[in-house]
Design a protein around this nucleic acid. Sequence first.
DNA 1: TTGTATGCGTTATCAC
DNA 2: GTGATAACGCATACAA
Lengths: 336, 336
Amino acid sequence: MTTIHDVAERAGVSPITVSRVINHSGYASQDTRERVEAAVIELGYVPNRLARSLRSKRTHTLALVITDITNPFFTTVARGVEDTASDAGYTVIFCNTDESESEENKYLQVLLQQQVDGILLVPARSTSDSIEMIRKQNVPVVVLDRRLPPGVDVDTVRCENELGAYQLVRLLLELGHQHIALLSGPLGVSTAEDRLAGYRRAMREAGFSDEEQSVIYGSFNQASGSEMMRQLLDRTPRPTAVFAANNLIGIGALQAIQQAGLRVPDDIAIVSFDDLPPTLLTMPFFTVSSQPAYEMGKRATQLLLARLTKAVTEPCQEIVLPTELIVRQSSGSVFG
Amino acid sequence: MTTIHDVAERAGVSPITVSRVINHSGYASQDTRERVEAAVIELGYVPNRLARSLRSKRTHTLALVITDITNPFFTTVARGVEDTASDAGYTVIFCNTDESESEENKYLQVLLQQQVDGILLVPARSTSDSIEMIRKQNVPVVVLDRRLPPGVDVDTVRCENELGAYQLVRLLLELGHQHIALLSGPLGVSTAEDRLAGYRRAMREAGFSDEEQSVIYGSFNQASGSEMMRQLLDRTPRPTAVFAANNLIGIGALQAIQQAGLRVPDDIAIVSFDDLPPTLLTMPFFTVSSQPAYEMGKRATQLLLARLTKAVTEPCQEIVLPTELIVRQSSGSVFG
DNA sequence: TTGTATGCGTTATCAC
DNA sequence: GTGATAACGCATACAA
């Protein structure tokens, strides 16, 4: 391994001068600069980031901890994070917890040991445990996509889940549906709870008591969506419309409906949270409440970077972005 | 930040003893061990991996460089890598090059600076440049999924692309198709070239000269698949069967066919390389030559780990795994 | 514009 | 079983 000393010797200068040239910090004469750069190339010198970071106390690395890497929503968030961080000269480490608190804890432990400069976290559960653990090491953190319990003071970027859900259910009600079921995510996850709240508000306003509403709880994935839908198909009266709490539940539900020999939207209408990329295009196209995933990643990263560089102790922010209602075929229409 | 010195002071021992207890290296009396562990918890001590790695010269980190993170084939490979590495106590850094040589180069630069212990590389192009760059830093590397030019001596894990392609085209020929087109990946990528070779062999054996064969070159993604298929639909005579060089090209082709008002397999049969996960289930289901993606990731990681630990200078290995022909609906049948 | 001395937090080496 | 010392490769603080 060739070190900064080897380069210095070759260029006939001191190590610190090499450091200055490489990092563009401090002054260096044209001549010195050229000799150093030549030596770097001749020796194939690769700076050791470990040593640099150990000394400078900055790794220029952020971490993004998400709960489901197979969900296009989160991969889009990740692209927003990566692009924004990269532009600012930061590297991003991606971690996938599969909605597991213990995995989350394990990864955070490692990330803190790695001395990441900041963490973007989609918490698996609504507790402040992870935040406290991170704070104890004085590492800035931004919570993404989900709320933590009231009283936990932390920067957050998320969407108007309650309103988005409300709008989707309103749409179904306006189309004349009297039996609308919710295929929910797990309790204890704020997005699931907020979407449930939006469903309940719309239903109550339409005159349905809580007992007349129909909610099944599952996980935010396709298998759970299919499973919940199968349960629903056995009920009488069978619902005429279904609100899937996220995109993967929606896909699972669609598959279960098709396997039962029924059609969407003719026999059962579907709406869901979170849009799908063209790769996952299915017939019919889904009516969704779409979150600005890329923008969420971008905003969260900007917030985190601001905390790093400005070293501000401003009060924590909560950025809540709107969702977009996109009406396509899966919700059906009053005309058929 | 609390350091190993603070812990040592608290426990009334020397720093090196703390190090031994934490790393389970060397001896320590029951009493000492307990006092140290108590101090670690009381102080909330988090070891600094930068310092550890700087001194020990091992980061216990591997890098996986892939070309398309949106392709389920590669994410499955990644799972195989992650699981295997994790079991061996290694962390994995994932990088996505989007098939770009310059991105690949950029990432490798960073990874070498980070002092990763080993690299798993899906090379964007069939050149030895990246390998040489990595080798210069004495970092072990395993090439995954793709071949490098003959003569480049490097550990490799890949599949029988030529044979898999041959089998798919044979299937179409046996079903009676006379006009079979190939929607190929880019020249310069070994998987595309090997699959092309398999197509040509099957076609030649069936009596079709190279001029009577029909090949369009594109990229390994969905947009390119659609675009190539649209070109194909304008030709006369229109092909009755299409071989998509990978799964995403297949999906794109299917969409283009459906948008043209045609049906699969009735109007046009499709077969493709690489299977799709249930999330991407489309009707009809694809007939594919499936690569053991998870197994590929696992084997490659095992090979890399062996290079690290055993410090062997055994000759390089090339592991070539078989593909599996899975016949489903998209290829149609002789009966209709 | 350049150099010297020093320390980042940890572990390898050797000693007791 | 445990400790003292030095060193990993680099950048900060200060000096020249």
